[in-house]
Write a protein that binds this DNA or RNA. Structure first.
Length: 692
RNA sequence: UGCGGGGUGGAGCAGUUGGUAGCUCGUCGGGCUCAUAACCCGAAGGUCACUGGUUCGAGUCCAGUCCCCGCUACCA
């Protein structure tokens, strides 16, 4: 390994802290854990000093919401999920040096230290604002905890941050008749003080460090996102919250306030390292702080999903920079998102492949999942996992290419030479070509890994197995054994050396498989630099037993998983017998008959350009043909609704929407998930028929 | 609304500084039989989202349009 590719002698690698309010799924693995684990294993094989840390993120409002919903305590929630997540990672084989948690004392102390450090330097801006407060529950309310009437469209049930009906983004104080969802009573405004990190002040520095310094380092999706943020100008960001779950703000005047989770979460990387150092007798500061000689600084790499880019590239570096003693990330290789069977992964809809369930249902198939996910990592764009593809990749690639090659070589060696490594006649040009190819691959793969191109790196590993299969097919030792045993000895020697090299380079990607290969070869090669060099197996070396590396995934296994997903979907669509909207006050008959509702028919429908939800409909109301803009595009395509009967409120004030005058409103039923369906006569009626 | 990323043969993806469009899987045909009917060879299949422009020449640069994903800050 040249120093050029790995110029640092010490590495600090982090994977995003999983939020401890639910189990892990394959999206997490593909986003931040498998890439990091490959990278770290590779560094270790190259003899680098590396610490790989992670842990559960256990603070924030979502944990308390979850606890409330399940009628338990935040502590019970985090204990449950921390244990589950940790066990899943261990079984799956993500090779953290430590998997910590942010509820530990060492973390609280370090987070407070960070806050105080910045506080004492006068970095924070202190600001008093008026926020809604629930007097029954004695707490300030997060925006989501407040509902009321939207000042824009007058619909009820708008949230403090956004009206879901008209899409307007709001401040809680904009709401008419705000109600706390905790007590159901109107909240009161109360003054509260918070400490803001002046990101605007760091903007010039960020432009220098990030936009200038990282232009050719960051992946394009990461760089573009950062540039976009910096271009629009940074604003001071509050680093404290009025919450009851988190790290206490270490100031007398801030009793009851907590640190913003995004201040404390990334510090979790550091506190985890600190705990690891305590446990193992290391010095954590070597991995995080600037060293006397900058050449001794560690290389800090954050593996995350794309939802975390701004915090890891802007907020956290700003905090580290403001503190001053810490190193900054060299790179933040963020991945895009992984989809599942055509849909986004969704925890709430249970549309996911859960890691703990996979480990139960596919015992000892960790490497199979690693392989499939690695080959579809969303490195440059969103990608998709399907069970059929999972089966195809395992059966046609792992079993057929890699497993089969290794098996062929071992079986032939045992059959012809009693499982001994033998030396035969001199190498031919073909043999020499194999060795020269073999010498190329480790460099190529190393280059891919250091550039975070893991899919490409894995494909190269598979190409080595392909090379082996072709070599065997061309050399045909099963024929030669009848005429030229010396040549067969050479062919199998070359094949075995190839297999041993394959085991070495497979380690970062398929650690368990590589281990099995080592057992079969009765050889261990925990050094990347062994690959591509001198032959690894000496003459006379005794091989171990041949065993199959992988087995095929059956159609039945795939069907079971697909059924499970559609089951989950069905359950999820029935379940929402929850949160039925509250009853409204009575209206008089006179008020009701003011509504002129008619049966109508959709004559034409088209999508309104540049919108997500809007369809422009032409409706035959019986009275006339008119244009109505309706927010139903997420559930209905224009083609499928043309000709459909609808109920339409025809005497609604016309309203300009996206430059189109909408004359009326289509009546829709909306369930608790926001799913819409038409309310219309069951059989054909004449357009213009009165609905009442 | 603004911004960022993406849109390449049936599927999943590569395409570095512009110079005849590649890979894996699938399909079809052939070979082989050591191997988990696995392996090897060959073939078919793309107007590189669309429209203009720069250039001797563009998937690759510029402008505009459309589609998909994400972010748009005090709810991780």
């Amino acid at each position: 390994m040249s120093n050029k590719a790995l110029p640092f002698k010490r590495y600090t690698v982090t994977s995003a802290l999983p939020y401890a309010n639910g189990p892990l799924h394959i999206g997490h693995l593909a986003g931040a854990y498998i890439p990091a684990d490959i990278y770290v294993r590779f560094l270790r094989l190259n003899g680098k000093d590396v610490v790989y840390v992670c842990g559960s993120d256990e603070h924030g409002a979502a944990i308390t919401i979850k606890a409330k919903k399940e009628g338990t305590t935040p502590q019970a929630i985090i204990d449950k999920y921390h244990a589950q997540i940790k066990a899943s990672f261990e079984q799956f084989g993500i090779s953290f040096d430590i998997y910590h948690r942010t509820s530990e004392r060492v973390h609280h102390e370090l987070s407070q230290e960070f806050f105080l450090n910045l506080y004492e330097k006068g970095e924070f801006i202190e600001q008093v604002t008026e926020q809604y407060y629930d007097e029954d529950y004695h707490q300030f309310l997060a925006d989501r905890y407040i509902t009321g009437t939207c000042p824009n469209c007058k619909s009820e049930g708008a949230y403090g941050d956004q009206c879901e009906k008209c899409g307007t983004s709001l401040n809680p104080t904009d709401l008419i008749n705000p109600i706390s969802t905790l007590s159901g009573k109107p909240p009161v405004l109360r003054e509260t003080k918070h400490w803001y990190l002046p990101l605007d002040k760091y903007q010039p520095w960020l432009e220098q460090w990030l936009l200038e310094g990282k232009r050719d380092v960051l992946k394009s999706n990461v760089y573009g996102q950062c540039r976009s943020w910096l271009k629009s100008g940074l604003q001071p960001r509050s680093m404290t919250r009025d919450l009851d779950w988190g790290v206490d703000v270490p100031l007398d005047e801030a009793k009851g306030k907590k640190l913003y989770v995004w201040l404390d979460a990334p510090i979790g990387y550091i506190s985890a390292t600190k705990q690891w150092a305590l446990d193992t007798g290391n010095d954590w500061e070597k991995y995080w702080k600037k060293q006397a000689n900058p050449a001794d600084n560690a290389c800090l790499i954050h593996f995350i999903g794309k939802d975390n880019i701004v915090f890891h590239c802007i907020t956290f570096p700003s905090i580290l920079h403001a503190h001053g003693e810490y190193i900054l990330p060299e790179n933040v290789p963020a991945n895009e998102f992984l989809n599942l069977e055509g849909d986004k992964l969704s925890t709430s809809r249970n549309h996911a492949v859960w890691l703990h369930e996979y480990l139960d249902e596919f015992p000892n198939k960790q490497d199979e999942l690693r392989y499939v996910l690695t080959s579809i990592l969303p490195e440059t764009a969103d990608s998709e996992f399907t069970w059929k593809d999972f089966q195809a990749r395992i059966n046609n690639e792992l079993v057929a290419i890699l497993g089969n090659f290794v098996n062929r070589v071992l079986v032939l060696s045992h059959k012809y030479f009693g499982g001994k490594v033998v030396v035969g006649s001199e190498l031919t040009d073909t043999d020499r070509f194999i060795f020269s190819e073999l010498a190329r691959y480790p460099k190529h793969i190393a280059g891919s890994i250091t550039q975070f191109r893991f899919r490409e790196a894995l494909a190269q590993v598979m190409n080595v197995a392909r090379l082996g299969n072709k070599y065997l097919a061309d050399a045909e030792p099963w024929k030669l054994i009848k005429t030229d045993e010396e040549r067969v000895k050479t062919v199998l020697n070359v094949s075995l050396q190839l297999t041993a090299n394959l085991a070495v380079i497979a380690q970062p990607f398929l650690p368990r498989t590589a281990q099995k290969m080592f057992e079969m070869l009765n050889f261990e090669g925990y050094d990347w630099n062994l690959a591509g060099g001198d032959p690894l197996l000496p003459a006379g070396h005794q091989l171990g037993e041949a065993q199959l590396l992988f087995e095929k995934i059956t159609d039945k296994q795939v069907d079971v998983q697909l059924a499970k997903l559609s089951n989950a979907k069905a359950v999820a669509s029935i379940q929402p017998a929850k949160a039925v909207a509250e009853a409204k006050g009575n209206v008089s008959f006179e008020e009701f008959v003011k509504m002129d509702i008619r049966a109508g028919k959709i004559l034409a429908a088209e999508k309104v350009a540049k919108t997500k939800k809007l369809l422009k409909l032409t409706i035959d109301t019986g009275l006339d043909q008119r244009t109505v803009v309706s927010g139903i595009a997420e559930f209905f395509s224009p083609e499928e609704i043309v000709g459909k009967q609808v109920s339409i409120l025809v005497n609604l004030e016309p309203r300009e929407i996206k430059g189109i005058t909408s004359q009326g409103m289509i009546l829709m039923a909306e369930d608790a998930d926001g799913r819409l369906d038409f309310v219309a006569p069951q059989s054909a009626v004449q357009p213009g028929s009165v609905v009442r």
